[in-house]
Computed example of a mutant assay.
Amino acid sequence: MLSDKIRQERQKKGLSQSELARRSGHAVSTIHGIENGDNQNPSFRTVCDIAKVLGIPLDELYQDMLDER
């Protein structure tokens, strides 16, 4: 799942939700919502920004999003 992948990668990098939010340019509530499943349909721009910060290929995250459906 996208939420699990983002959480796992964030934790591997030793980033808090606040730091990921700051680096990606999105609100902490956005990161929290994605990770806990409240936001199951984040915008493409948000996913791109998070992927860039985490160093995850976008196609890997995109595939996770498709697998959820």
Rank of each mutant, 00 (worst) to 15 (best):
S16I: 09
Q17P: 07
S18D: 07
E19P: 04
E19R: 15
E19V: 11
E19K: 15
A21L: 08
A21S: 14
R22M: 12
R22L: 09
R22K: 15
R22A: 14
R23V: 06
R23D: 09
S24I: 13
G25T: 01
G25R: 11
G25M: 10
G25D: 13
H26V: 15
H26G: 02
A27Y: 05
A27K: 12
V28I: 11
V28L: 07
V28A: 01
V28G: 01
V28T: 07
I31L: 02
I31S: 03
I31A: 01
H32S: 09
H32D: 06
G33A: 09
G33I: 06
G33V: 05
G33K: 13
G33T: 05
I34H: 02
E35G: 03
E35V: 08
E35T: 10
E35P: 01
N36P: 03
N36R: 12
G37M: 03
G37A: 06
D38N: 08
D38H: 06
D38S: 10
D38V: 04
D38E: 05
D38C: 01
D38W: 04
N39F: 07
N39E: 10
Q40C: 02
Q40L: 10
Q40G: 03
N41D: 10
S43G: 11
S43R: 06
S43Q: 11
F44L: 09
F44E: 08
R45H: 04
T46Q: 03
T46G: 03
V47R: 00
V47T: 05
V47G: 00
C48M: 10
C48A: 08
C48E: 14
D49G: 13
I50S: 05
I50Q: 02
I50E: 05
I50L: 15
I50T: 09
A51E: 07
A51W: 04
K52Y: 06
K52R: 13
K52Q: 14
V53H: 11
V53N: 06
V53E: 01
L54W: 12
L54P: 03
L54E: 07
L54M: 14
G55W: 09
I56D: 01
I56Q: 11
P57V: 06
L58G: 06
D59K: 11
E60T: 12
E60W: 04
L61M: 08
L61Q: 00
L61W: 00
L61K: 05
L61A: 01
